[in-house]
Design a protein around this nucleic acid. Structure first.
Lengths: 201, 201
DNA sequence: ATAAATAATGAACGTCTTGTTGTTTATCTA
DNA sequence: TAGATAAACAACAAGACGTTCATTATTTAT
């Protein structure tokens, strides 16, 4: 029952992957040709087609792989979560940042600079949105939201991603714990209060 | 001194533009070929090259044109602006939304769905960031920011764009004034307070 | 260790798209 | 109306794609 995959396949796939990431950072996804990948990976161009249908297929396979890991990394414990609490924001942010720390070069290639893969950000946003939604069960007895839940989530997710991108772009200038704490307070209490600016009404 | 441009040029350029926008929505920017544009615009493929270098050139020309209009549309009156105030957020949001309302089909093609032009969002973010920065002169005597200004701006701009995209995607479900008011209050006072959720400390 | 299986190579192909260069035709401006 | 010029038409080489097929090399399983 030991269905081991051929070593040659593993080696080739790894070569392709490494070459691909490097090339994205060098010239951007769109500019890459299959021949580029083959050259860099030191394989025949034909060999590429033995493993992937085309360039988008390679990209998607790779993205889904990493985002699957991200999904698994963010585990919520709803019991300890106060509904509508800022704890959920902080927890998700914290675990996402830790996961990113374990895959910096990949996330850098995907999220930062000219050559970023915009599609990746969209996929990541959806995952974040699901996770927040998941841990966001409204307690009964609470008053209904005063604003559109969709609007609220759009706001939360986009600011969430904004912070993450800022953090990765600046080579993680603050510890993950600090960022997640600042972020959740920023969102929950407003920038005027958290930034120490005079409160107006 | 009446350097009028040849009518043929105007007509051709307009045809190209219309065809281009339609094609983006139909099959996405990347999938479009010059021949596609020529067919749709009912011009010879060669004629395209008389006006634009290539596909990216066409895209950039068009984007810069509209974003130039956006830049001009957002005029700040620093006199009436309270530094660090939420008024600046509200004003910018309001004028941007109004500008978008005047060019919905274009912004829809650029910002929404599978076939969006991600580059456009980046350019737009930079404009928003500049505008916010412009109207954001710290009053002397105020305490220094308790958090990184960069982090704060990243947060503001990304949530700003998130709201805008949500608004365009959902066919502008609320009046511009309402959205800009809700947004500025959301950012300034926090989602807990604005959404009517029990405040925790 | 050897044989069978299969991954990788290398060459060749038709197709499509690109960007360019001429020449001719049609249209606009002055 | 005449000169200017935009647009059409035809043709080209170069590059990239995706596929086929025979051959070589490596791995797995016996």
């Amino acid at each position: 029952m030991s269905k081991k995959t051929d070593l040659r396949i593993l080696r080739t796939k790894q070569s392709i992957r490494t070459a691909f990431i490097a090339l994205i950072q060098e010239k951007g996804y769109e500019a890459i040709t299959i021949q580029d990948i083959a050259d860099r990976a030191m394989i025949n161009r034909n060999t590429f087609y033995l493993h992937y249908e085309n360039k988008p297929d390679l990209l998607n396979t790779y993205m889904d792989e990493l985002l699957g890991e991200l999904k698994n990394a963010v585990v919520l414990c709803p019991i300890s979560m106060n509904p509508y609490s800022i704890a959920i924001l902080e927890t998700v942010m914290q675990t996402v940042l830790e996961h990113i720390s374990r895959n910096t070069s990949f996330y850098y290639a995907m999220l930062i600079e000219e050559n970023r893969i915009y599609m990746f950000q969209v996929k990541m946003e959806n995952i974040i949105k699901d996770k927040l939604n998941e841990g966001w069960n409204p307690a009964e007895g609470n008053p209904p939201l005063a604003i559109s839940k969709e609007l609220l989530f759009e706001y939360l997710v986009s600011s969430f991603m904004g912070i993450i991108i800022w953090w990765v772009k600046n080579d993680r200038p603050l510890p993950a714990g600090e960022v997640s704490s600042q972020f959740s307070r920023l969102v929950a209490y407003g920038h005027l209060k958290v930034a120490g600016i005079a409160f107006e009404e």
